[in-house]
Design a protein around this nucleic acid. Structure first.
Lengths: 192, 192
DNA sequence: TGTACATCAGTGAACGCGCGTTCACTGATGTAC
DNA sequence: TGTACATCAGTGAACGCGCGTTCACTGATGTAC
């Protein structure tokens, strides 16, 4: 005799992870309480421990989710750079990439959380590497990803909208230059 | 009638800011209590409010300090990149640059904290801009600074020392390439 | 088809704890005499 | 030179609050008969 349909609890659990993932990205892990996450998922705080052993277990899942959701592939490198370093990404951390929002905190969490985050980052970077121009070391995708995340992080930290816009623009210039296809580099020199 | 010599209180205050700056960088702002900071400065927690109105005021000063201390100038750009993306910088956040350690939290703090952080970042970036090759847009220093900070942040987050080393290396390659002097670029093409 | 009921996802009061902050106090300081 | 004392940097007990976690419970579910 099974009560409720079989996937009911799994769906609830997924909605808690999703609510947490957004709340953590928006306001930081420590600043978001278990009660707030449950309320955002339309539940009360007491039910939390029917789904998770601890807040830390939720953190591990929510952080991995925060990276993987954002890994949705753009088709080309310029498109990816443009959208990552956009105003809308800067202004919408809750639905954006998890690295600029949570990267600073992850290193201070449990081994399990860090491991799941690392796995998710690896998946993300593998996809980014596919966008790099031929002849580029695929490892350089790590620097592109991390570098753009740092740029968004600083653009969010700064208390001056105009400066923040300029930081995003500088990022677009620099990363486009660093990952310009060889063909264009040669072309550019020939043009002089 | 003045008790204690005139600079006594100022020295104590500075040592509190310094202790806080290191503790915040090492373990995050929210994870460090006022009592811990005071203990690290060799005092008890009660005296804190003789020096600061609130923890937030300390945060503002300590974060600015965390950036400015790290702004100590390297002489050349390759030297700067090499030391910023070094293992020792990754492994010593307490005495390292404040951006990878605190950048994610700053945006969620008070306007005053964000303003002081922004000013410090501007000072820092002005110095970095001086190291850029001729013909480079000085604004690009923002992307170099933010990009390297993101790289260090990710290198610290990841739960795999070998991968972390490779991230630092990729960062060195990419940022050196993005900020290679024009002369060398031309030279390089000529060499083929 | 209708009803009794076992299940268990979700509820909400209660807990112990650490935090930022307050405040009455203490005791080292070095000047006034 | 020696002593009395006003100052105020620093002390530590106490506060209210929000947190993560626990637990006795409730009530919607849909199967068994």
């Amino acid at each position: 005799v099974t009560r409720y349909d079989r996937e009911h609890k799994q769906r609830t659990r997924a909605s808690i992870v999703d609510a947490a993932s957004q709340a953590f990205r928006g306001r930081g892990i420590e600043q978001v309480s278990v009660g707030e996450v449950m309320a955002a998922a339309g539940l009360t705080h007491g039910g939390f421990y029917a789904h998770f052993d601890s807040k830390e277990q939720l953190v591990a899942e929510a952080c991995a989710t925060a990276l993987l959701q954002a890994a949705s592939s753009k088709r080309t490198l310029p498109e990816y750079i443009r959208s990552y370093l956009s105003r809308s990404h800067r202004d919408g951390p809750e639905t954006g990439c998890g690295l600029p929002a949570l990267g600073g905190e992850i290193g201070r969490h449990t081994p399990d959380t860090r491991q799941r985050f690392t796995e998710a980052a690896q998946t993300y970077v593998d996809r980014v590497a596919e966008l790099l121009p031929e002849g580029t070391d695929p490892e350089d995708a790590w620097a592109l990803f991390a570098g753009m995340a740092g740029t968004v992080m600083l653009a969010r930290a700064v208390d001056d909208r105009e400066l923040s816009d300029r930081i995003l623009l500088a990022g677009r210039r620099v990363f486009a230059r660093a990952f310009r296809p060889e063909v264009e580099k040669v072309q550019e020199e020939a043009d002089r």
